[in-house]
């Protein structure tokens, strides 16, 4: 049986006088022990989805089950079995690290010592500061404490809503390493993120935008479905290059990626030779053109493009 089953979930919000669609008929399944990523920008509907699955919100339509329990009828059971880390830091800032953890352990009817094995790995990193008030911790440490608190009752499913937002690259990397280790303990993990590059760290991902799922699969499979040849282009004057490429009618899309532009041509017959000719004609120098494989961000943008049409 799957850890999470979502069937056709929809949710609308009333903002001022207009209804905003947060989720538009979403369906997916998360297998037991899977590290499942929900990747999308702010406003894609990630938080609404997490709140529905953690029984904090009621969906307008559709059904969802967590560990076999219905999110509406059996909400009490779900609240006993899941761990949840909301997007905003949600611990008591005026309590110390230890007091926070102790408090969450008690309200889940357990104690720190009972499940210490599970959090040991993470807790040891913040243990030197256990007498410090949570409000005085650094971003990375807060996040580790929040994860400990969400894990303290040994949940079978863990919901992490944008745990790495606003956290620097080093802490982000460490956090994902912790998730990989938790996965080994058999916990099913749903994690949302606006950072596309983190998708590759998940077993499977759902790419979300505007309340809809653009694609669900292993990141490598999503990328392999990128149908057209992709060219990485570089030259001396990058901003002028961007303008030229965007104005060239043969180009279908052109996006910057680090030091390169990723270019998709309208016709698959046109390749590096045509691009080079065009750039030479426009007086660009130090031209580099190579064919590359799409990454998840290329795929996301291509899917965004098709879904908007």
């Amino acid at each position: 049986m799957a850890a999470v089953i979502v069937e056709n979930i929809s949710k609308k919000y009333q903002v001022e006088k207009t209804k905003v669609t947060a989720l538009n008929g979403i369906s997916f399944e998360v297998a037991k022990g899977e590290l499942f990523g929900i990747v999308g920008p702010d406003g894609a509907g990630k938080t609404s989805l997490f709140r529905i699955l953690t029984t904090l919100l009621l969906a307008d339509a559709g059904a969802a089950r967590v560990e076999g329990y219905d999110v509406v009828k059996d909400y009490k059971e779900i609240r006993k079995t899941v761990g949840y880390m909301p997007g905003k830091f949600s611990l008591y800032q005026d309590l110390s690290v230890e007091e926070n953890l102790d408090f969450f352990a008690t309200i889940f009817n357990t104690s720190i010592s009972e499940n210490y094995d599970l959090i040991k790995d993470i807790y040891q990193q913040i243990e030197p500061f256990k007498k410090r008030r949570a409000g005085k911790l650094s971003g990375g440490m807060k996040q580790k404490l929040a994860l400990c608190c969400a894990l303290i009752h040994k949940p079978s499913v863990l919901f992490l809503d944008e745990p790495t937002t606003g956290v620097d690259a080093v802490s982000r990397k460490e956090f994902w390493e912790m998730l990989q280790r938790l996965k080994l303990q058999g916990i099913s993990i749903l994690v949302s993120t606006p950072y596309m590059d983190e998708a590759s760290l998940c077993d499977r991902v759902a790419l979300m935008e505007n309340g809809k799922i653009l694609a669900i699969d292993k990141p490598s499979i999503i990328n392999s479905k990128f149908s057209k040849p992709l060219w990485a282009v570089q030259s001396n004057n990058m901003f002028a290059l961007l303008k030229s490429l965007k104005n060239w009618e043969a180009v279908s899309s052109c996006y910057s990626f680090g030091e390169f532009y990723h270019v998709v041509m309208k016709s698959e017959e046109k390749g590096s030779r045509e691009i080079e000719e065009f750039l030479m004609k426009n007086q660009f120098q130090e031209i580099v053109i190579k064919q590359i494989d799409a990454n998840i961000e290329d795929s996301f943008m291509a899917l965004m493009h098709t879904s908007n049409e």
Partner: peptide, 13 residues
Amino acid sequence: EMGTMEVILVSPL
């Protein structure tokens, strides 16, 4: 306001 209610609600309490 602090968002802690969210975590408390998702508990058996």
